[in-house]
Design a protein around this nucleic acid. Structure first.
Lengths: 184, 184
DNA sequence: GTCTATAGAAGGATAGAC
DNA sequence: GTCTATCCTTCTATAGAC
């Protein structure tokens, strides 16, 4: 079937709203308003309702940000420069967009972790794929998890505090950890 | 005024529900049901409604977890043991409680960061106090921010993935970073 | 397939009896 | 101060006209 423009607009609008308001805070009426789509189209394209819509947004956003981060990473020559580019490089767009330019998955992940098993699995799969991609580059799964945790946690602190300070501090730590001598 | 038992039960119940369902996902009817309080009591004790209730929960939970973490930290002899005890020590209760034993602030912080300035400030103040307490102990603000980011981010990954693996990996990184040679 | 209208439940908040 | 009843809005979801 041909890709529906309406369908894509709904997905994009949902990702945008999830990012700012989270899953529970985003109503389907707000979604269709933002997407400039009639309400019926939502259930035509997503018969599974809000859950199906969220599941697709999680996977699509996960793939999008993975590609973005990998592109930034892979254009650097050294591991230190690459990790620094990803973490420190995230600070600038964050500040420029009033601290909204975070990926929508973290907020949703926390909201659904104990309340919706289908969506919890979707967020877990995205995090796993990110971890695998980072592990390939850093050569060690534990380091990949630690760097990813630093990145996610820094996003939380930056958004709440409205400073890039935590991201820069986390970036320094991540660079040091990613380039330290391999674990015995 | 004497501390009201009803008021305290409402605060406790709200913190519990925020932790599992977040701010938007928690209705006031669910709060009074969980607290076994009549609906009117909520607006008697919290005339500011849901926002005031959330603000008090954020500050109370922030103080509670700060005291908890400081107690765990301060009973260790070395910085390495202390940071390890805080991070790695968080893994056990997490697993034992089906990954619900996280503090309720992170989820709420992300939900309100772009939607409610009053609550955003409340979460920012809590994070700042944690940062100050950690800075006193680690002797460096940037390290404190980095360790805190690692802790918060690991909570996200653990809750979504239902493993303690990210917390253990983040703990190792945090210990190494907290005990490394001081920055030039 | 597009779009409107609405059902039925749950949301936050208030009034007022006791 | 305690508790019930209710208001109005918003939520997800569906029915059905076109």
């Amino acid at each position: 079937m041909p890709p529906s423009q309406t369908r894509d607009r709904i997905l994009t609008a949902t990702a945008e709203l999830f990012r700012r308001q989270g899953y529970s805070g985003t109503g389907l009426k707000a979604v269709v308003a933002e997407a400039r789509a009639p309400f019926g189209s939502l259930y035509h394209h997503f018969p599974g309702g809000k859950q199906q819509l969220a599941e697709e947004v999680i996977h699509a956003s996960g793939a999008y940000f993975q590609a973005l981060v990998c592109a930034v990473y892979d254009e650097q020559a050294t591991t230190a420069d690459a990790v620094r580019a990803v973490l420190t490089g995230a600070a600038e767009p964050l500040e420029a967009t009033d601290y909204e330019a975070a990926c929508p998955i973290t907020t949703v992940a926390l909201e659904v972790a104990s309340t919706d098993e289908v969506l919890r699995r979707a967020t877990a799969e995205v995090f796993e794929r990110w971890t695998v991609a980072l592990t390939e580059r850093l050569g060690d799964r534990d380091r990949a998890l630690a760097v990813l945790a630093a990145l996610e946690g820094a996003f939380v602190l930056c958004r709440a505090r409205r400073t890039t300070e935590p991201m820069l501090a986390a970036g320094a730590m991540a660079v040091a950890h990613a380039t330290a001598a391999p674990p015995s």
